[in-house]
Simulated assay, not measured.
Amino acid sequence: MAAMSELSFPPLMEGLALSGAEDPFALACQKAVLGCDAGLVVYNLSHDRLQAALVFAPEVALQQAMTMLPVCGIALQNALGALAPPEVAVHLQWDGGLRINGGRCGRLRAASSTSEPSEVPDWLVIGLDLPLWPPGEGETGDHPEDTALYAEGCADVDAGQLLESWARHALHWINRWEDEGTEPVHATWRGLAQDMGETISHKGQTGTFLGVDEDFGLLLRDEATTHLIPLTTLLETP
């Protein structure tokens, strides 16, 4: 059941707390369809998982608005940088996957009112899903690359404080993007990108991860050519 937020968010942001098995990403998309204000932060904090979703009302075409996905990734790295021990390393996969100390640890996801890159969307939702504790004993053997925040030396990080910090840093980077363009976002993201220059696979395509274009489209080089895979291909149907 949704409740007023017990956490403190920056001006222009409003929190909505969920409980039980309620999915913040799905509810944020529903609220966006109904016309809620931008800046709504829907979240569900359980003992072993942090889930949250942030609603945007873009004023640019979807292709540019999708920059909010890497922006929210940078914001999470900044938030953990402020709250976690200094030796904890956070890296960002192009597809929204999160890495902590090299292990896979949750992801960012996106949904929008449109999938047409040239259209200005009515709304865009970025979701965050971060495991705090690993699955029950005996369940981790199937996925040795997976980890959880508290298993990586971050047991003292309060999930509520982390969520508040993520929202503050997201707002900071949104403002920088609006004021300064994509350059500072690109520069910061490149320093955090996972597997840059390495061979990666994405939806059946394998090649060398050369980097990203102006709108954070994936540049993937195989033996024949360089493919450009737009961020909009990551959109989920809410």
Rank of each mutant, 00 (worst) to 15 (best):
L163Q: 00
S118V: 04
M66D: 05
Q194K: 13
G102A: 09
L220S: 06
P134C: 15
E137C: 06
P58A: 11
G153C: 07
E223K: 14
G97I: 07
P11C: 04
E223H: 14
P184L: 03
P11T: 08
S5D: 08
Q194I: 11
K203L: 03
H202F: 15
L34G: 14
P144V: 00
M13P: 01
A2V: 10
T182W: 01
Y150P: 01
C105P: 01
F216V: 03
A148M: 08
L163T: 04
T206E: 15
Q77I: 00
G217K: 03
A2C: 00
A32Y: 02
L210W: 02
C154E: 08
G106E: 04
E180T: 04
R190W: 03
S165R: 12
T147Y: 14
A32K: 03
A170V: 01
R221S: 12
A75F: 08
T147I: 05
F209W: 14
V125G: 04
A159S: 13
A193R: 03
A155T: 13
A52R: 02
R49V: 00
S46T: 15
D95L: 06
V120C: 14
Q77W: 06
G20T: 10
L69M: 06
G153Q: 09
E119G: 02
Y43R: 09
P134W: 03
V157A: 07
S46L: 11
P184H: 10
E145Y: 08
A2S: 09
L69D: 01
T147S: 15
R168C: 02
A65N: 13
H143S: 14
D222S: 13
L130I: 13
P70D: 11
A84N: 06
D142Q: 11
D222C: 14
A167L: 06
L83M: 05
D95T: 11
G204H: 07
A167T: 06
D146S: 09
L18N: 09
G211A: 07
P144M: 06
G103T: 01
T140W: 13
H169T: 02
P144Q: 04
A61T: 03
S46K: 12
P144D: 02
K203S: 10
F56N: 01
L219K: 12
P134K: 14
G207K: 08
V41G: 06
L45A: 01
P144W: 10
